[in-house]
Structure formats: C-alpha cells, structure tokens
C-alpha cells in the first residue's frame, strides 16, 4: 500500500515539476524523500527468511 502511494506521489511531483510552480515541486520531493526514509526504517525490522 505504501509503495503504491509513493509511486502515485512521485507521478504527481513529476507533473508539478513539469507544469506547476517550482517551490511546490521541491516541497513534494522533500516529503517523498522523507517518506522513503520512513519506509526503509519501517521495513528494517522485517523478519527475513534467509535463502540458505
């Protein structure tokens, strides 16, 4: 679910970067980058099934 939201948010940020105001595009970029770090930290505690 969070990955779908991230892909959607990046698509919107790209459209804003191409058609909208520059500060809004950079603001959206910053929010997405923070969300990516949060997603990485969230999955850092996943239980992993090792393949060997």
């Amino acid at each position: 679910m969070e990955f779908t939201a991230l892909f959607l948010a990046i698509t919107i940020a790209m459209l804003v970067a191409w058609r909208g105001p520059r500060p809004l595009a950079i603001g959206l970029f910053a929010v997405i980058l923070v969300a990516c770090v949060a997603t990485l930290l969230h999955h850092a505690t996943d239980r992993l099934t090792l393949s060997f």
Binding site: F7, I10, A13, M14, A17, W18, R22, A25, I26, F29, I32, L33, C36
Partner: peptide, 9 residues
C-alpha cells in the same frame, strides 16, 4: 523514479 525530478526541473 525519484531521480527523475531533478532532470525534469
């Protein structure tokens, strides 16, 4: 995909 924002700007 996020890498593309810089080049678009």
């Amino acid at each position: 995909a996020l890498l593309a924002i810089g080049p678009i700007l």
